[in-house]
Design a protein around this nucleic acid. Structure first.
Lengths: 192, 192
DNA sequence: TCGTTCGTTCGGGATGAGCCGAACAACACG
DNA sequence: CGTGTTGTTCGGCTCATCCCGAACGAACGA
């Protein structure tokens, strides 16, 4: 997936949050603007199969002046400590945030966001998508080999499937080696 | 998302299926090979945030010689008619399968698969990802405008976020206009 | 050594997803 | 018009997910 639910993109987006945030502020208040952007991140998180809390935690870290600990995040987001602990683990695994352990003394863990989103996408492409394509490809190739002698519709379909996946894997592998700006340039430069 | 769960990619993949399939067959049996590929599709479906049944139904359609009706799919997959009805609706919305209604007479609906997977990805990029990026961008730009007078860390972060999203949206828009082969060629041709 | 401070893990409650069977609705054909 | 056939919708069941509070464990300082 890449998306959790391709449809019903907006479900109940008015889930009651545990703490109230930014009661009433003027429009040019940085805190209010920040809050609106973070809410947008919550929504995006849902589209990409993450929980709403993941979006908020990433958002808080995005705007933070310095890496935050779990305790800090609990205070900022109003989520329980266990929730923050689990969500940060998930976000770390994806690559959306990083643990900066042992900054100075103490076992206090601090998290900082990866702000270059394309890096995150790239890692997902490599770690998840490419790997999935490879696994499928292995299965398909094995099936193709098993049916070497056969020449029916099924064999033809399997060949087609292999070719499709080979192309997709090539594209993913290639794209994962580009930066976002390079990618844009490469696509703009290409003339058909 | 694009993926439902970026982690725990393999959960209990041995869920009991309602009907038994391909009891025991030789390795070069087309049906056995087909079955293994379809099982692989079930797994892929999960990664991309779809249900296992969606993967199987798509797989059955992929190998079908002709478009299948809901009744056919019930017979082929062993799922309940209601399940097949719901899943086909989802798959149609995504673009993985198409309804070929009114082929000849009758109100019998038939489904056929989109075998060019990149087309599907492209549609998802356009319909879901690009749209999401645009929505976020609108929010971020509004926030930036609200903070025109302000010049603090938050304002800087918002500017950075806008630039990131603008680049990503450009890339998505561009990529969605390419075929898979063109995309590969464009990336291969680009020399840094 | 003993609190203190942090983070993780465990069990539980609420919500939602996936699947089922059965009832319902639409349409073709006798 | 019935009547069978096909697809959709509805209520229910089960299981996973999300989030919580509380208990647990590991490190550090006094």
């Amino acid at each position: 997936m890449l998306t959790k639910h391709f449809g019903e993109v907006c479900r109940d987006s008015a889930r009651s949050r545990p703490v109230e945030r930014v009661p009433d502020m003027r429009d040019d208040d940085p805190a209010a603007a920040r809050e609106r952007v973070i809410e947008s991140m919550e929504q995006s998180a849902e589209l990409y199969g993450l929980s709403r809390s993941a979006g908020r935690i990433y958002g808080v870290l995005y705007f933070a002046a310095e890496p935050l600990s779990i305790g800090d995040l609990v205070e900022e987001t109003g989520y329980a400590k266990s929730t923050v602990s689990n969500v940060t683990r998930t976000l770390t695994r994806i690559g959306l945030i990083r643990r900066r352990s042992s900054s100075g003394g103490g076992r206090r863990v601090r998290f900082e966001p990866e702000r270059e989103l394309w890096y995150v996408v790239r890692e997902v492409l490599r770690r998840d998508v490419a790997r999935e394509l490879q696994t499928t490809l292995r299965t398909v190739r094995q099936a193709e080999r098993d049916l070497e002698a056969v020449d029916d519709e099924t064999a033809a379909r399997i060949r087609e499937l292999r070719e499709t996946h080979e192309t997709l894997l090539d594209v993913v592998d290639l794209a994962a080696d580009f930066s976002a700006a390079e990618l844009r340039e490469a696509l703009e430069a290409y003339d058909r």
